[in-house]
Design a protein around this nucleic acid. Structure first.
Lengths: 186, 186
DNA sequence: CCTTCACGAGACAATTATGTCTCATATAAG
DNA sequence: CTTATATGAGACATAATTGTCTCGTGAAGG
């Protein structure tokens, strides 16, 4: 029961993330095709759409958590940690996207994890504020929103092949902190 | 045939925009309920989902175009026009959202209009660059992405009742131009 | 060679979404 | 009052999706 080859399961999950970010109305058959497997095999790994969605949420939270953790440990300040997080999260934007779009609000433990993650982000931003990275008169909730959406913007740039992940992340961070403005406030 | 009361049709379209932004997998029955009408009535106005989607795209483009036009005419510079557009578009973010998400790419005229709109936006940003609003070394495509996504971030703030439309639009514009940074570049 | 096991393909039923139809009702115009 | 029209409710058929099942295959391991 547990000896299922992990790559197939992973392929399903990755395909689901990809397709969901492109077309949220996609059917399970579409996901199976994208994963390069048969539809029956998908049902061997996940009893149905609900179970798959819950699993996607769990994986998304774990991947994002790991990436964030990894970024934070390599930083010597909250400001630097957030900058590293931007870079680490751009390739995982499909996960972030899934979590922000899907209403897994009925699953209490996933909702709790999601909220904990959000609070952690808000906390990091508050600390970065104290370090002088963000202006004190800008609401933290806005900075969180801006961070998430600029992250998504960076991902779109990469998807459109208009920038590399590194370039896009740098642009997103620069925009968040300094804006795209010219010399007017130098 | 043409004497259909406009309010019912409008109610359907508005309900569809709302529901679509919340749950893209919603059924036509869900839209009918949200619009406060019977499911059969929806089919009297739109032959099916395809026709509804095309109509939504047309309405979205028109609403956005009107709002943008109105904003531009009241401005004396491209920079000011873009700032006014941000304010004008926040309440219409569900339209922007729909256009960016839905794949109406099979409909040639809608696709053409959408691209024309995108190019116009890119052009306005290029002009604003010349006015000194945006740094020359930032790609225009990124500024477009950032504008759209910060617009969406502002809309989320309003939806979460964490800010008024005016406040959120001001935050989005400030972030786009100056960023959320502190005193580091004052 | 033989067994096991994950898999793909496809048949099948159940569920859901969609599109069409009829009928009764309400409302407004004549 | 009468008529035209938009509507809601609901029956109905069709199509799409979903979930379950069986069978044959091919590869891994004994």
């Amino acid at each position: 029961m547990k000896a299922i080859k992990p790559t197939t399961r992973d392929a399903i999950i990755e395909a689901a993330f990809q397709i969901y970010s492109e077309d949220p109305t996609a059917s399970l058959a579409d996901i199976a095709v994208r994963a390069g497997i048969g539809r029956a095999t998908l049902h061997r790994h996940f009893s149905g759409r609900d179970e798959l969605l819950v699993e996607l949420a769990k994986v998304a939270i774990k991947d994002l958590d790991d990436a964030a953790e990894c970024a934070v440990t390599g930083a010597q300040s909250y400001t630097e940690a957030l900058r590293l997080m931007m870079h680490a999260l751009v390739p995982l934007a499909s996960r972030q996207w899934f979590l922000s779009q899907t209403s897994v609000e009925n699953h209490p433990d996933i909702l709790a994890e999601y909220q904990r993650q959000s609070e952690e982000m808000a906390n990091d931003i508050e600390e970065a504020k104290k370090e002088g990275c963000f202006a004190a008169d800008v609401p933290t909730t806005w900075i969180v929103q801006a961070f998430d959406n600029l992250l998504y913007a960076a991902w779109q740039m990469v998807r459109n092949e208009e920038a590399t992940a590194k370039q896009a992340a740098a642009l997103a961070w620069r925009t968040l902190v300094e804006g795209t403005g010219g010399h007017l406030h130098g």
